[in-house]
């Protein structure tokens, strides 16, 4: 699915990612944990194609394609989804309209006809109910005056409607209370299947109680310093980043 080799990234001359390797296969859930400034969010932006980041070295293969050559929207339409840490507000654009536009952009890219209004309404309703999102919220402008929890749920709703192959969750747990965390995690778990993959970026082991990863990686200073299974997250919670990075 995704194969990152020897990735080096800088922003405005400052090196952020310094030789990162990561391989994610179909059906796997990987957790990426690390302290602030370790390069977690940078990795999510580089994967999704945000500009301003300079790729100094390395390759990223995504389902046999050179990911770095694809535009942001091409990557999205090829099934790469980023759940934003800070979802953007778009005033004047109704949430449901945005969802429909996104779905139809993807269908157009794939050479499919637009989803008809009824089919769309049904899909949105069922997915929204799973996430405990009210229909009233879908009529509001996208992310405008949403609470932090509502914004994160909205990201997961978009994810479930677009059913990506490779989903990156960038600190989706930050700012969520326990109930919202549970709902969001259930939403993610429902999507898991043998054909798609997840990269869950987080500070805290707490999220991983709900979304059980197959692999856990610890990132420090732009490199993956330790990889293991779920038990690594528990060990990390106990010892802290500093000790874990040093023992690596």
């Amino acid at each position: 699915m995704l194969e990152i080799k020897n990735l080096h990234v800088s922003i405005e001359e400052k090196k952020i990612i310094k030789g990162l390797d990561l391989s994610i296969n179909k059906g796997e859930v990987h957790a990426l944990m690390g302290p602030n400034g370790s390069g977690k969010s940078t990795l999510s932006y580089v994967l999704s194609g945000k500009d301003k980041y300079e790729i100094n070295d390395g390759t990223i293969d995504y389902n046999g394609k050179n990911l770095l050559e694809l535009d942001v929207d091409e990557r999205a339409n090829e099934g790469l989804f980023l759940a934003f840490q800070y979802p953007m507000e778009i005033p004047g654009v109704q949430t449901s309209f945005f969802l429909k536009t996104a779905i139809n952009s993807k269908r157009k890219y794939l050479g499919q006809s637009e989803m008809d209004a009824l089919e769309f309404a049904k899909l949105m309703k069922s997915k929204a109910e799973e996430l405990n999102i009210s229909t009233e919220m879908l009529k509001r402008d996208l992310n405008v005056n949403y609470s932090g929890g509502e914004k994160k749920k909205q990201e997961i709703l978009q994810m479930s409607m677009l059913s990506p192959k490779m989903a990156i969750l960038d600190e989706t747990d930050s700012g969520l209370d326990i109930d919202a965390l549970r709902i969001v995690s259930e939403g993610v778990n429902k999507l898991r299947n043998s054909d798609n993959s997840f990269l869950v970026i987080t500070h805290y082991q707490r999220l991983l109680n709900y979304i059980k990863p197959d692999f856990v990686h610890i990132i420090a200073d732009g490199k993956i310093v330790k990889s293991g299974d779920y038990s690594l997250a528990l060990e990390l919670e106990e010892k802290g980043y500093e000790e874990m990075s040093q023992t690596a």
């Binding site: 929207d73 005033p91 654009v93």
Partner: peptide
């Protein structure tokens, strides 16, 4: 806003559709 554009593009809209969407939102009233 560049971040708004990026957000829309990450959802599969090409840059022109993204601008159209954001500007239409701006003009909605």
């Amino acid at each position: 806003n560049e971040d708004q554009l990026f957000y829309c593009q990450q959802r599969g809209l090409n840059s022109e559709d993204a601008v159209g969407l954001i500007v239409n939102g701006f003009c909605k009233e």
